[in-house]
Design a protein around this nucleic acid. Structure first.
Length: 292
DNA sequence: AGCCAGGCAAGTG
DNA sequence: CACTTGCATGGC
């Protein structure tokens, strides 16, 4: 086990662990003290943790430091939490909603989730509430993944594509995946048979990458954008969900919310400028925790 | 009871 | 191509 500390005041723009991990951008982290989305501070000595085929990590903040333990090195933690991003570079471009979101919320970082778990978890997100999407991923890990001993803890590891593909549809339906069960199975099969892999989308341009991801079953433009933004580093991808759509209706009368996914997201990209997807994350968090 | 939840696929016109 | 409908499940 590797461990260390990272000074939060040396991170440009700081770090709010709760906002970063409980905002709904990732469903692959858990906490040792209580259920997720309580949005309460960690109890003393407790941790946020993630266990995926790529590695295990635990983090908490203490005295302006990020304390971490991992099966991997400190670079793993820095990557997963995007600690090298400079949040002070996120400018508001004079946009009122964005300006408010950026001023109300500090230290929110995009996550960098592993490709396959990210893709699968957002396939599960279709027509589903944030809290339940997270529960579904915990169920998948408990039922289909392995376990790993880590310090005083034993964690369920999120399943690999092969482990997911070897499940039966009835098994997935018993985990309450509903009609998403067949989508997860088909996508997992495509990956484990090396037909497609979400990591392949890293090398190509944004629009092309979005189309590539839509080749997976259960993946449309929104789920593709989530994977591009929360796993593959495309900070221009703007997941257009029900929250952002409502915000467009309320705050951007100039934009016709019924004009279609591509048109609306393109409007927001122009409106918000560089790293529009990163800014979307701030708006999403603002809508859910401040304005709501 | 009925509507909604980080949408998508399949079916029409 | 644009538009409509069905979809499992659970909370309110």
């Amino acid at each position: 086990m590797n461990q260390g500390t990272i000074a939060i005041n040396k991170l440009e723009g700081g770090l709010d662990l709760t906002r970063t991990l409980e905002s709904g951008q990732t469903f692959l982290w858990n906490r040792t003290d209580r259920e997720f989305f309580s949005r309460e501070s960690l109890a003393k000595g407790e941790w946020y943790y993630t266990a995926t085929p790529g590695g295990v990590a635990m983090v908490r903040t203490s005295d302006e430091k990020l304390v971490w333990k991992s099966t991997e090195g400190d670079g793993f933690v820095r990557e997963r939490l995007r600690l090298d991003d400079d949040l002070t570079e996120l400018e508001d471009n004079g946009d009122t909603l964005l300006k408010t979101a950026l001023s109300e919320i500090d230290g929110l970082r995009l996550v960098n989730d592993p490709e396959v778990p990210c893709l699968v978890s957002f396939i599960c997100s279709s027509n589903m509430r944030v809290e339940r999407i997270h529960e579904m991923q915990q169920e998948l890990a408990r039922e289909l993944g392995g376990t790993v001993s880590f310090g005083d803890y034993e964690f369920n590891v999120y399943p690999t594509a092969s482990e997911l593909a070897s499940a039966t549809e009835d098994q997935l339906k018993s985990l309450k995946l509903g009609y998403r069960a067949s989508w997860v199975l088909e996508t997992a099969s495509m990956i484990s048979q090396n037909r497609l892999h979400p990591a392949n989308a890293k090398k190509i341009e944004y629009k092309e990458a979005q189309q590539y991801l839509e080749g997976f079953t259960g993946v449309g433009p929104k789920v593709a954008d989530c994977t591009l933004l929360f796993s593959l580093g495309f900070t221009e991808a703007i997941p257009l969900d029900t929250w952002i759509q409502s915000a467009v209706e309320k705050h951007y009368p100039a934009c016709d919310v019924d004009a279609g996914y591509d048109t609306v997201t393109e409007f927001l990209r122009e409106q918000w400028g560089n790293n529009a997807g990163y800014k979307q994350n701030y708006v999403f968090e603002y809508l859910r925790t401040v304005e709501a």
